[in-house]
Design a protein around this nucleic acid. Structure first.
Lengths: 341, 341
DNA sequence: ACAAGCAATGTAATCGATTACAGAAATTAC
DNA sequence: GTAATTTCTGTAATCGATTACATTGCTTGT
């Protein structure tokens, strides 16, 4: 029916050339006041909308950013997405989403998104991309239009935004120590994850610094999810020499841990103190409310988006490979207490 | 440096015309065996990747779908997204994400995404879009390329995929009734939501059918989140004539409800039975594990995507305004029990 | 043997915006 | 008054793929 009108149509109505219309739209101050009005009017009557496909072809820009997550089903990431999106939308950028498992399955190459003119940049929330994929991304100047958020990779050089994982862990351990705990255990995240390593190393360092007991069974390997928390709680129950406090590498772990203990009649924090990391919405409402280290996930997303956009727009190379670290904070709730005598 | 190669380049290498290359790629069986090989070889050596922007312009298709959510930060939707994405990716479609609040803020018109050639179709997860927005979408044949998932709208005619909200609610009430409860309350979702209405009406209908008591204070208006659950729990506590069972319109509500009760020393299910709706990951791990009505959110997303894609591809008009309803099921856990005598 | 049909390929128009370049008009300089 | 600028606008090339139409050569039927 009424096909959407093109620049041509607007030009005809306004009685000017398409070049003038285009200029009026993208750079109003180079045309005269009068044409500006005429064109504005013509745009209005014809209901003109720029055709993105055409613009994208000509400019070789897509005005959209690809966000890569390890797992779409995991609610942990939604807040980060919110942060990213809130920065992108006002600047006219769209947000494309894909999961890394998808990428692996379909055999798509990430770099294609860029070459393709499907995306102008990529925000990666998954530190676990295969090395060859990362290497291929690193080539050319494309590495500048890629940024890691939350997680990062050691397989290549990319700008990144992350939380203070070390300081957060240190804070947690010290807090437990100050409560009087001397037997502190750690439940880690998944084996091959950068966050897991960072937090585990920081944990061990702090335990050493405080001169605390550290049998190897007190480092329990888990995952970031509830199930792993339940499983490791079983391990804790089975221990002869039980730690009086457990620092979990994620809130979900901690919640699973607590819930499994509770099913076995063990009380938190009376019998054991449990801490998490993240401060997900639920942490404050759990029973008991969870003491945890708060990561500002919204800001994580916002900063990543903002850095990416600024390098895209100004292509100011000086910025270099920036690495931004977002502060974390201790949120004291009721899952922790002084140890029983 | 090495600019990505174009169809022209491939054509030159293979010694054929661009038309032939294009045909080989999109419709291999119309070219001869020998050219097919030559072109395949040329594509490989030149590392050719189709330029999406160019293709999009020519075909007036973007090979991407816009998904609109009410609130990106809400983890409820991530599983639906997972379902959508898993269907889109293998078919070569990308997934664009925007939140409706964004749309309202930036004053963007949704229809533009379609006119724009930014998206070929839209999946809407928010039944609460302003009426004028919905109306504008309904015009033209664009209404066919829009589908509501999970929620829906009464302001226009669109295909949709939803869960059995009525039957789910009925199941919940009957289950509580069979446990022996005669005083059953309902905590609703947010005021203006279609799911809220559907569940509330179904609740009232079933209460009437079972001939149960139904004072107005037993319909408590809430929201879908934890906070509302806490607030309404206060209301329950303040009641003189307390219901012995509470059916909440969402799991988050139920979890908030339970956690607030627990803070006040009231035990679930001993003192009151609480049910939710959704079956979020956490429901099974909460203390106590939550009895709830399970919605298959992955399937919700998958079906929506699959219907949308099939109308896009075949544009088989016969399908008409389909309305798919996905079954729900009762998940019996430990937040419900027979009432105290 | 010749028309008709088919298969494979090439030529060139096309999608709709952006922008380099050029030209016209108006302003300023001296 | 003429040259030099500046300001504004138009012409036309361009981005890279797709595809209608034309062409060529070959098969097939009678």
């Amino acid at each position: 029916m009424s096909k959407t009108s093109t620049l041509q149509d607007v030009a005809r109505v306004a009685g000017v050339s398409t070049a003038t219309v285009s200029r009026t739209l993208s750079n109003p101050n180079v045309v005269s006041e009068s044409t500006r009005k005429r064109v504005a009017e013509a745009v209005k009557v014809s209901g003109y909308r720029v055709n993105r496909a055409a613009r994208n072809l000509r400019t070789q820009r897509s005005q959209s950013i690809l966000v890569l997550l390890p797992d779409l089903g995991n609610p942990f990431f939604s807040t980060i997405l919110e942060g990213i999106s809130s920065h992108l939308a006002p600047k006219g950028y769209s947000m494309l989403i894909a999961s890394t498992s998808q990428i692996k399955n379909t055999g798509e190459r990430l770099i294609d998104y860029l070459d393709d003119v499907r995306a102008d940049g990529i925000i990666i929330l998954d530190g676990g991309l295969p090395d060859d994929v990362v290497k291929s991304l690193e080539q050319g100047q494309s590495s500048r239009t890629i940024i890691y958020a939350c997680e990062w990779t050691e397989a290549g050089e990319f700008p990144s935004v992350r939380s203070e994982n070390r300081r957060g862990t240190q804070t947690a351990v010290r807090y437990l120590h100050e409560l009087g705990h001397r037997k502190i255990a750690h439940v880690t995240g998944p084996e091959d994850n950068v966050l897991t390593h960072a937090r585990k190393e920081a944990f061990e360092a702090e335990i050493a610094a405080l001169n605390l007991e550290n049998p190897s069974e007190w480092i329990m390997s888990g995952d970031f999810n509830l199930e792993a928390g339940c499983k490791t709680a079983q391990d804790w129950i089975a221990m002869k020499n039980r730690p009086t406090a457990v620092f979990c590498a994620s809130d979900m772990l901690a919640l699973g841990f607590i819930s499994e203990l509770s099913r076995n009649g063990i009380k938190v924090p009376e019998d054991v103190s449990v801490m998490g990391f993240d401060d997900v919405v639920l942490a404050g409402q759990f029973i008991p409310p969870l003491t945890t280290i708060r990561q500002d996930r919204t800001q994580l997303g916002e900063r990543a988006a903002s850095i990416l956009l600024s390098t895209l727009d100004n292509d100011n190379q000086e910025d270099g490979l920036c690495k931004v670290v977002i502060p974390v904070s201790l949120v004291e709730r009721q899952s922790t207490a002084a140890p029983k005598l």
